[in-house]
Amino acid sequence: MKRIAVMTSGGDAPGMNAAIRAVVRAGIAQGIEVYGIRQAYAGLLSGDMELLTSREVSGILQRGGTILQTARNEEFKTAQGQRKALRRLNEHNIEGVIVIGGDGSLRGATVLHDLGVPTVGVPASIDNDIYGTDTSIGVDTALNTILDALDRLRDTATSHNRCFLIEVMGRNCGYLALTGGILGGAEVIITPERPLSMEDVARDLESAYVKGKAHAIAVIAEGAPYKVTELQEFLEKQHVGFEIRLTILGHTQRGGGPTAFDRLLATRMGVEAVKRLLAGETGVMVARQGRVQTTVPLKEVTSQQREITGEYYDLAQMLQ
Protein backbone atom coordinates (compact mmCIF):
# COMPACT_ATOMS: atom_id res chain seq x y z
CA MET A 1 0.00 0.00 0.00
CA LYS A 2 1.52 3.30 -1.14
CA ARG A 3 -1.30 5.84 -0.90
CA ILE A 4 -4.19 6.20 1.55
CA ALA A 5 -6.77 8.87 2.33
CA VAL A 6 -8.31 10.24 5.51
CA MET A 7 -11.60 12.06 6.07
CA THR A 8 -13.59 13.51 8.96
CA SER A 9 -17.33 13.08 8.75
CA GLY A 10 -20.53 13.84 10.66
CA GLY A 11 -20.59 16.24 13.59
CA ASP A 12 -17.22 17.77 14.44
CA ALA A 13 -15.54 16.76 17.67
CA PRO A 14 -12.54 18.28 19.49
CA GLY A 15 -9.54 16.09 18.73
CA MET A 16 -10.34 15.39 15.09
CA ASN A 17 -7.39 17.52 14.00
CA ALA A 18 -5.08 15.61 16.35
CA ALA A 19 -6.28 12.38 14.72
CA ILE A 20 -5.67 13.76 11.21
CA ARG A 21 -2.17 14.81 12.22
CA ALA A 22 -1.46 11.37 13.66
CA VAL A 23 -2.68 9.58 10.52
CA VAL A 24 -0.59 11.79 8.25
CA ARG A 25 2.63 11.56 10.22
CA ALA A 26 2.25 7.84 10.91
CA GLY A 27 1.71 7.29 7.20
CA ILE A 28 4.76 9.35 6.28
CA ALA A 29 6.82 7.39 8.80
CA GLN A 30 5.79 4.21 6.97
CA GLY A 31 6.77 5.65 3.59
CA ILE A 32 3.25 6.15 2.23
CA GLU A 33 1.38 9.17 0.93
CA VAL A 34 -1.71 10.39 2.80
CA TYR A 35 -4.41 12.37 1.03
CA GLY A 36 -7.02 14.43 2.86
CA ILE A 37 -10.61 14.24 1.61
CA ARG A 38 -12.39 17.53 2.21
CA GLN A 39 -16.08 17.78 3.12
CA ALA A 40 -16.35 14.07 3.97
CA TYR A 41 -18.40 11.92 1.57
CA ALA A 42 -19.46 14.98 -0.45
CA GLY A 43 -15.78 15.70 -1.12
CA LEU A 44 -15.16 12.05 -1.92
CA LEU A 45 -17.79 12.13 -4.66
CA SER A 46 -16.50 15.41 -6.08
CA GLY A 47 -12.86 14.30 -5.91
CA ASP A 48 -11.93 17.10 -3.51
CA MET A 49 -8.76 15.62 -2.06
CA GLU A 50 -5.13 16.65 -1.83
CA LEU A 51 -1.83 15.35 -0.56
CA LEU A 52 -1.15 16.18 3.09
CA THR A 53 2.47 16.62 4.09
CA SER A 54 3.92 16.96 7.55
CA ARG A 55 3.86 20.72 7.10
CA GLU A 56 0.14 20.78 6.25
CA VAL A 57 -0.71 19.21 9.62
CA SER A 58 1.74 21.27 11.64
CA GLY A 59 0.15 23.45 14.32
CA ILE A 60 -3.27 21.76 14.29
CA LEU A 61 -2.87 19.52 17.34
CA GLN A 62 -4.44 22.08 19.69
CA ARG A 63 -7.19 23.27 17.35
CA GLY A 64 -10.84 22.33 17.63
CA GLY A 65 -13.03 21.48 14.65
CA THR A 66 -11.47 19.81 11.61
CA ILE A 67 -9.21 21.25 8.93
CA LEU A 68 -10.75 18.80 6.44
CA GLN A 69 -14.22 20.12 7.29
CA THR A 70 -17.30 17.92 7.28
CA ALA A 71 -20.63 17.76 5.47
CA ARG A 72 -23.64 15.51 5.06
CA ASN A 73 -24.30 13.76 1.76
CA GLU A 74 -27.30 11.74 0.59
CA GLU A 75 -25.90 10.76 -2.81
CA PHE A 76 -23.35 8.40 -1.29
CA LYS A 77 -26.23 6.29 0.01
CA THR A 78 -27.23 5.44 -3.58
CA ALA A 79 -25.65 2.82 -5.86
CA GLN A 80 -24.77 5.54 -8.35
CA GLY A 81 -23.06 7.60 -5.67
CA GLN A 82 -21.08 4.61 -4.47
CA ARG A 83 -19.85 3.87 -7.99
CA LYS A 84 -18.78 7.49 -8.26
CA ALA A 85 -16.88 7.20 -4.98
CA LEU A 86 -14.97 4.17 -6.28
CA ARG A 87 -14.14 6.05 -9.47
CA ARG A 88 -12.77 9.04 -7.56
CA LEU A 89 -10.61 6.82 -5.35
CA ASN A 90 -9.24 5.01 -8.39
CA GLU A 91 -8.54 8.30 -10.16
CA HIS A 92 -6.30 9.30 -7.26
CA ASN A 93 -4.83 5.80 -6.82
CA ILE A 94 -6.11 5.63 -3.23
CA GLU A 95 -5.60 2.12 -1.83
CA GLY A 96 -7.15 2.55 1.61
CA VAL A 97 -9.33 4.98 3.57
CA ILE A 98 -9.47 6.02 7.22
CA VAL A 99 -12.82 7.51 8.30
CA ILE A 100 -12.95 9.60 11.48
CA GLY A 101 -16.47 10.19 12.77
CA GLY A 102 -19.61 8.95 14.50
CA ASP A 103 -22.27 6.37 13.78
CA GLY A 104 -23.37 7.67 10.36
CA SER A 105 -19.78 8.15 9.26
CA LEU A 106 -18.88 4.62 10.29
CA ARG A 107 -21.89 3.29 8.36
CA GLY A 108 -20.38 4.97 5.32
CA ALA A 109 -17.05 3.35 6.13
CA THR A 110 -18.83 -0.01 6.21
CA VAL A 111 -20.16 0.66 2.71
CA LEU A 112 -16.65 1.43 1.44
CA HIS A 113 -15.42 -1.82 2.95
CA ASP A 114 -18.28 -3.75 1.32
CA LEU A 115 -17.33 -2.16 -2.01
CA GLY A 116 -13.86 -3.65 -1.67
CA VAL A 117 -12.02 -0.57 -0.40
CA PRO A 118 -9.73 -1.33 2.58
CA THR A 119 -11.26 0.87 5.29
CA VAL A 120 -10.62 1.52 8.99
CA GLY A 121 -12.82 3.71 11.21
CA VAL A 122 -11.87 5.96 14.10
CA PRO A 123 -14.64 6.86 16.61
CA ALA A 124 -15.23 10.60 17.09
CA SER A 125 -18.49 11.62 18.77
CA ILE A 126 -19.03 13.84 21.80
CA ASP A 127 -22.14 11.80 22.74
CA ASN A 128 -20.03 8.73 23.59
CA ASP A 129 -22.66 6.57 21.92
CA ILE A 130 -20.43 4.45 19.66
CA TYR A 131 -20.55 0.77 20.48
CA GLY A 132 -17.36 -1.19 21.07
CA THR A 133 -15.16 1.55 22.52
CA ASP A 134 -15.01 2.85 26.10
CA THR A 135 -14.81 6.42 24.84
CA SER A 136 -14.63 8.38 21.60
CA ILE A 137 -12.64 11.39 20.46
CA GLY A 138 -14.23 14.61 21.73
CA VAL A 139 -16.13 13.23 24.72
CA ASP A 140 -13.72 14.43 27.39
CA THR A 141 -13.48 17.95 25.95
CA ALA A 142 -17.25 18.32 25.62
CA LEU A 143 -17.74 17.07 29.16
CA ASN A 144 -15.22 19.56 30.52
CA THR A 145 -16.97 22.36 28.62
CA ILE A 146 -20.25 21.37 30.27
CA LEU A 147 -18.64 21.24 33.72
CA ASP A 148 -17.14 24.69 33.27
CA ALA A 149 -20.60 26.04 32.38
CA LEU A 150 -22.21 24.25 35.36
CA ASP A 151 -19.66 25.67 37.78
CA ARG A 152 -20.17 29.20 36.47
CA LEU A 153 -23.96 28.96 36.48
CA ARG A 154 -23.95 27.54 40.00
CA ASP A 155 -22.15 30.67 41.21
CA THR A 156 -24.84 32.97 39.88
CA ALA A 157 -27.65 30.58 40.86
CA THR A 158 -26.49 30.68 44.48
CA SER A 159 -26.27 34.47 44.45
CA HIS A 160 -29.89 34.85 43.33
CA ASN A 161 -31.59 31.79 44.84
CA ARG A 162 -32.32 30.42 41.38
CA CYS A 163 -32.70 27.13 39.60
CA PHE A 164 -30.94 26.82 36.27
CA LEU A 165 -32.23 24.44 33.63
CA ILE A 166 -29.24 23.55 31.47
CA GLU A 167 -29.76 21.75 28.16
CA VAL A 168 -26.82 19.75 26.84
CA MET A 169 -26.37 17.75 23.65
CA GLY A 170 -27.59 14.17 23.40
CA ARG A 171 -30.59 13.46 21.16
CA ASN A 172 -30.44 9.70 21.61
CA CYS A 173 -27.81 9.21 24.30
CA GLY A 174 -27.77 10.91 27.69
CA TYR A 175 -24.12 10.29 28.56
CA LEU A 176 -23.14 13.97 28.65
CA ALA A 177 -26.18 14.93 30.70
CA LEU A 178 -25.77 12.08 33.18
CA THR A 179 -22.00 12.31 33.63
CA GLY A 180 -22.01 16.11 33.59
CA GLY A 181 -24.84 16.15 36.12
CA ILE A 182 -23.03 13.77 38.46
CA LEU A 183 -19.73 15.65 38.30
CA GLY A 184 -21.42 19.05 38.42
CA GLY A 185 -23.57 18.23 41.45
CA ALA A 186 -26.95 18.63 39.71
CA GLU A 187 -30.15 18.12 41.68
CA VAL A 188 -32.03 16.82 38.63
CA ILE A 189 -30.78 14.89 35.58
CA ILE A 190 -32.99 14.05 32.59
CA THR A 191 -31.84 11.70 29.80
CA PRO A 192 -33.61 10.10 26.82
CA GLU A 193 -33.02 6.67 28.35
CA ARG A 194 -34.51 7.54 31.74
CA PRO A 195 -36.69 10.63 31.43
CA LEU A 196 -38.49 12.29 34.32
CA SER A 197 -42.00 13.70 34.04
CA MET A 198 -42.33 17.43 34.50
CA GLU A 199 -44.29 16.74 37.67
CA ASP A 200 -41.38 14.71 39.08
CA VAL A 201 -38.95 17.50 38.24
CA ALA A 202 -41.16 20.02 40.04
CA ARG A 203 -41.37 17.73 43.06
CA ASP A 204 -37.58 17.28 43.25
CA LEU A 205 -36.89 21.00 42.92
CA GLU A 206 -39.49 21.91 45.53
CA SER A 207 -37.94 19.32 47.86
CA ALA A 208 -34.51 20.92 47.37
CA TYR A 209 -35.97 24.34 48.19
CA VAL A 210 -37.75 23.10 51.33
CA LYS A 211 -34.49 21.51 52.52
CA GLY A 212 -32.92 24.96 52.45
CA LYS A 213 -30.75 24.78 49.35
CA ALA A 214 -29.65 28.16 48.02
CA HIS A 215 -29.79 27.01 44.41
CA ALA A 216 -30.67 24.09 42.16
CA ILE A 217 -29.30 22.76 38.89
CA ALA A 218 -31.20 20.58 36.42
CA VAL A 219 -29.27 19.08 33.50
CA ILE A 220 -31.44 18.04 30.57
CA ALA A 221 -30.32 16.14 27.46
CA GLU A 222 -31.77 17.59 24.25
CA GLY A 223 -33.44 14.20 23.63
CA ALA A 224 -35.74 14.64 26.63
CA PRO A 225 -39.45 13.93 25.94
CA TYR A 226 -40.31 17.64 26.17
CA LYS A 227 -38.66 20.92 25.23
CA VAL A 228 -36.75 22.75 27.93
CA THR A 229 -38.83 25.85 27.24
CA GLU A 230 -41.95 23.82 28.04
CA LEU A 231 -40.35 22.59 31.25
CA GLN A 232 -39.41 26.12 32.24
CA GLU A 233 -42.96 27.37 31.68
CA PHE A 234 -44.40 24.45 33.66
CA LEU A 235 -42.06 24.95 36.63
CA GLU A 236 -42.77 28.68 36.78
CA LYS A 237 -46.46 27.90 37.14
CA GLN A 238 -45.78 25.34 39.90
CA HIS A 239 -43.99 27.89 42.13
CA VAL A 240 -41.31 25.45 43.31
CA GLY A 241 -39.58 28.13 45.39
CA PHE A 242 -36.68 29.00 43.07
CA GLU A 243 -36.69 31.49 40.23
CA ILE A 244 -36.30 29.47 37.02
CA ARG A 245 -33.68 30.36 34.42
CA LEU A 246 -32.77 28.51 31.23
CA THR A 247 -29.41 28.07 29.51
CA ILE A 248 -28.95 26.06 26.30
CA LEU A 249 -25.26 25.26 25.79
CA GLY A 250 -25.74 24.20 22.16
CA HIS A 251 -22.75 24.00 19.87
CA THR A 252 -20.33 25.47 22.41
CA GLN A 253 -19.95 21.82 23.47
CA ARG A 254 -18.41 20.93 20.12
CA GLY A 255 -15.92 23.79 19.96
CA GLY A 256 -12.64 24.63 21.61
CA GLY A 257 -9.26 23.01 21.77
CA PRO A 258 -9.17 19.35 22.85
CA THR A 259 -8.12 18.39 26.36
CA ALA A 260 -4.89 16.51 26.99
CA PHE A 261 -6.89 13.29 27.22
CA ASP A 262 -8.55 13.83 23.84
CA ARG A 263 -5.26 14.80 22.19
CA LEU A 264 -3.64 11.61 23.42
CA LEU A 265 -6.64 9.45 22.55
CA ALA A 266 -6.88 10.91 19.05
CA THR A 267 -3.15 10.54 18.47
CA ARG A 268 -3.10 6.91 19.59
CA MET A 269 -6.18 6.04 17.56
CA GLY A 270 -4.87 7.77 14.43
CA VAL A 271 -1.55 5.93 14.58
CA GLU A 272 -3.29 2.64 15.33
CA ALA A 273 -5.63 3.09 12.35
CA VAL A 274 -2.66 3.42 10.00
CA LYS A 275 -0.97 0.38 11.51
CA ARG A 276 -4.09 -1.74 11.16
CA LEU A 277 -4.75 -0.61 7.59
CA LEU A 278 -1.18 -1.35 6.50
CA ALA A 279 -1.37 -4.73 8.25
CA GLY A 280 -4.27 -5.70 6.00
CA GLU A 281 -7.19 -5.14 8.37
CA THR A 282 -10.35 -3.68 6.87
CA GLY A 283 -13.95 -3.23 7.88
CA VAL A 284 -12.93 -2.49 11.47
CA MET A 285 -12.96 0.43 13.89
CA VAL A 286 -10.11 1.27 16.23
CA ALA A 287 -11.38 1.10 19.81
CA ARG A 288 -10.16 1.84 23.31
CA GLN A 289 -11.02 -0.92 25.75
CA GLY A 290 -9.46 -0.34 29.13
CA ARG A 291 -5.95 0.83 28.32
CA VAL A 292 -5.68 -1.31 25.22
CA GLN A 293 -6.03 -0.21 21.60
CA THR A 294 -7.91 -2.87 19.66
CA THR A 295 -10.33 -3.15 16.72
CA VAL A 296 -14.02 -4.03 16.46
CA PRO A 297 -15.81 -5.04 13.23
CA LEU A 298 -17.68 -2.08 11.75
CA LYS A 299 -20.80 -4.18 11.24
CA GLU A 300 -20.86 -4.89 14.97
CA VAL A 301 -20.23 -1.23 15.80
CA THR A 302 -23.08 0.03 13.64
CA SER A 303 -25.57 -2.64 14.67
CA GLN A 304 -26.18 -1.16 18.12
CA GLN A 305 -25.64 1.86 20.35
CA ARG A 306 -23.35 2.01 23.34
CA GLU A 307 -25.42 1.94 26.51
CA ILE A 308 -24.78 3.90 29.68
CA THR A 309 -23.86 1.71 32.62
CA GLY A 310 -26.59 1.45 35.24
CA GLU A 311 -24.02 2.27 37.92
CA TYR A 312 -23.99 5.89 36.76
CA TYR A 313 -27.74 6.21 37.31
CA ASP A 314 -27.32 4.71 40.77
CA LEU A 315 -24.59 7.24 41.53
CA ALA A 316 -26.74 10.12 40.35
CA GLN A 317 -29.66 9.00 42.51
CA MET A 318 -27.46 8.53 45.57
CA LEU A 319 -25.66 11.88 45.28
CA GLN A 320 -28.58 14.17 44.49
Rank of each mutant, 00 (worst) to 15 (best):
T145R: 01
T145P: 08
L150W: 04
S197T: 15
V117T: 08
N172W: 01
E199N: 09
I137M: 05
Y131P: 03
D148Y: 12
G184Y: 15
E187Q: 03
L150C: 10
P123H: 01
A157D: 10
G184E: 06
T179I: 13
V117M: 06
A177I: 09
N128I: 15
V117E: 01
T119I: 13
L153W: 14
I130A: 05
G181W: 10
L147H: 13
G108F: 01
T133M: 05
G181Y: 02
I137S: 02
Y131R: 02
A157G: 15
A186S: 15
I190D: 06
T119K: 13
R194D: 13
L153I: 12
C163G: 09
V201W: 08
G184Q: 12
R162K: 13
D200L: 04
G108N: 11
G138Q: 10
H113F: 01
E187K: 04
S125G: 08
G121E: 04
G185Y: 13
S105Y: 10
V111G: 00
T145K: 03
D134V: 05
L176I: 06
G116Y: 05
E187V: 03
A142G: 05
I146N: 01
T110D: 07
A177T: 13
L106K: 00
A124T: 13
G180K: 01
L196G: 08
G121Q: 04
D200E: 14
D127Y: 03
G174I: 06
S197L: 04
T141N: 02
G174A: 11
D200Y: 08
G180S: 10
T156F: 08
T158Q: 14
T110I: 09
L178Y: 04
D134I: 07
C173W: 00
G108H: 08
S105N: 10
N128G: 08
A109E: 10
I146F: 12
V139D: 12
P118W: 11
E193A: 09
V139C: 07
L150Y: 05
N161V: 14
P195L: 09
R107L: 09
V201L: 02
I130T: 14
A124M: 09
R162L: 07
L115A: 15
P123Q: 02
N128S: 06
M198T: 05
G116L: 06
H113W: 10
N128W: 03
D140C: 00
R107D: 11
S197R: 14
T110R: 11
C173T: 11
R203F: 14
L153Y: 14
C163N: 12
N128E: 14
T110P: 10
R152S: 12
G185E: 11
L176C: 04
F164S: 03
I146R: 00
G184R: 02
I182W: 00
S125I: 15
N144K: 04
D127R: 00
